[in-house]
Design a protein around this nucleic acid. Structure first.
Lengths: 341, 341
DNA sequence: ATATGCGGGACTAAATATGACCCTGATGTA
DNA sequence: TACATCAGGGTCATATTTAGTCCCGCATAT
């Protein structure tokens, strides 16, 4: 942590608290604007009057403006929010936490996003933003980017900035359709990201898990075969991590199968594979998407995970491969270090 | 000012106030330790109870310790004080003030010390410390350092750190004896500084101002002649600035002479010469010390000045020569920019 | 028309900060 | 040795700030 921060925390120890309080308020307004005072207070679990006091300060500093429709963040306020995130990163010494996690999980890079998802669901947006920037910085001309599904991934697509500087980018769904929600389908997310990157995309029009026979039939379709070949050439794989139990249910596996998988110690699911704590594959759903071998061969893997319930899944997947960039929230990050001790 | 500081001042505007309050308290204790709560409150003009609240914070942070004899600053506290001074320098954007002064006065370098001498006499100690560090960094082997008198200079000698790394350093008084106070005599100060630097020193055993005949007689004394020759070879001249009126009185000039000098518009005194606002010499006391020509030839001149009453004197002396390093307190620095507008 | 959610005002209760004074003990001085 | 002085700590009434709560008028959407 920088000298200057230590100095400040020493002489004005209450600084951290005030700063984080105001940051949270400002951020919440930003993500929900326009929003009223009462709603804000209720959602943040802070007294209405406290909000009012802080609002007055922020208004005076011209970080937010008040209209009859509700409060919203000014342009200056938006900039401040971005900078504050980095500042809080430093204030909480998250760089040290990142380094510790890199050692514990033995992976290339860890990015910890300030905040605890379990306490504040908005953290998902922050994680999405950070992840989208991270991915963006990795992309080179003619790269093939593999995308999985899930709410975290959907958020990444949402927050991904428009950047059409790279040529010939191809975005591929790395898994088929799963669950009911359109917004969180790999297909949908791939298309969204491709548009923002000014790239191409392909769709994988199949359910994620299939019976063996159905899989064989489907693999005879030329379009599907083409995508399958392309998936093997993925340069950057963006992977939302899942819990084994949740994903098994979402896949509509039979209760018997689920019990079987769980009995084998499955904690994590990724691209249709189920892994135990030690990163050993204990079950595999027959899928048209990425195989374990394909996964091992991908050069850049970005794993994104939010929430303490993903703790074990993260630890499992991280042991599969060292060339992983892991992006996660502070809450689950601390939980991992706690378990590692 | 650094990005991070702007950010903080924007989101926690009350930071500055709290920080400066605690800095002042800590600093006052440091310079007067051990000191009691009541005395402290009285001298700082803060309520006794306020002091108590702040003391509790500082104690909790282990920046000061409390004994039955009074409060004193811990080792950590001392370090914090030093760092805080730089921090406040940044917080108040004094670098910009320094640059502005360099332009206004057209001199090489300006160092502004945080605080207003007229409100807080302890600033003299800070100025002394900064000046002593500045001088220290200028010294090279075999340098001859010229020293004048005054309370500011005395403080520099006091705060000068022991540093015997340079060889063959010679410290010379650049003026004779003046006034009653032993502590502020150029002779005394020179000796003190020489000891701290592990160098040699010479003494100038003559009154600072003399009648012409007396001067001629004295100049025949070999020891005096020797020093006079050495003075012409001064590498670093450390100059405390004086007001014309004050110095004239301290020199015990006749009321008639004083009136004459003042009528000519004298505002500044330095090494026995009196200057008007434009830096023109209007009167000269016959002295064995530095001449105006000698002064112009010195390579490094460090001017030190404290207090708003020195405003005009500073502006006058600065116009004499561009190769000056000026060290002054924030109060008089701002006064100069105010006058320049 | 009306229900909802908005900011702002106002009043009370609680918490905190402040001021004022006393007490006891350590220390230095007569 | 006695005493004056100055130290920190305790205490308590009071001033000020902060927080909780409710109401009002207004804009907006239904």
């Amino acid at each position: 942590m920088s000298e200057i921060l230590k100095l400040q925390k020493k002489i004005v120890p209450e600084l951290t608290e005030i700063l984080e309080k105001r940051y949270n308020i400002l951020r919440y307004i930003y993500y929900n604007q326009p929003i009223g005072r009462r709603t804000l207070a209720g959602n943040l679990g802070i007294g209405e009057r406290v909000i009012r006091t802080e609002i007055n300060v922020l208004k005076k500093q011209e970080l937010l403006e008040i209209q009859s429709i509700g409060m919203s963040v000014t342009e200056e306020g938006k900039m401040i929010i971005d900078k504050l995130q980095d500042f809080i990163h430093a204030l909480r010494d998250l760089s040290s936490l990142e380094n510790r996690l890199q050692e514990i999980l033995m992976i290339k890079k860890v990015i910890v996003v300030p905040g605890t998802f379990d306490e504040d669901q908005l953290i998902l947006k922050d994680v999405g933003k950070i992840a989208s920037l991270c991915i963006n910085s990795m992309i080179k001309d003619n790269n093939i980017i593999g995308i999985t599904g899930g709410s975290t991934m959907a958020q990444i697509a949402e927050e991904m900035p428009e950047n059409k500087s790279k040529k010939g980018v191809l975005v591929l769904p790395a898994r088929g359709g799963l669950g009911k929600n359109l917004e969180t389908q790999a297909n949908n997310i791939s298309a969204k990201i491709a548009k923002k990157l000014g790239g191409m995309y392909k769709l994988l029009h199949v359910p994620d898990s299939l019976e063996k026979e159905a899989l064989e039939t489907i693999l005879k379709i030329p379009e599907i075969r083409e995508i399958r070949e392309l998936i093997k050439k993925i340069d950057i794989l963006v992977l939302g991590l899942g819990r084994a139990d949740e994903m098994a249910r979402r896949r509509k596996l039979s209760e018997k199968t689920i019990e079987e998988i769980m009995n084998k110690g499955a904690v994590a699911e990724a691209f249709g594979h189920y892994f135990n704590r030690d990163g050993q594959k204990v079950w595999e759903s027959s899928t048209v998407g990425l195989s374990l071998v394909d996964f091992q061969n991908v050069e850049n893997v970005v794993c994104i995970a939010c929430g303490k319930k993903k703790t074990e899944a993260i630890m499992s997947i991280a042991s599969l491969k060292s060339n992983i960039t892991l992006i996660l929230d502070e809450g689950v990050a601390r939980e991992i270090t706690r378990l590692a001790n």
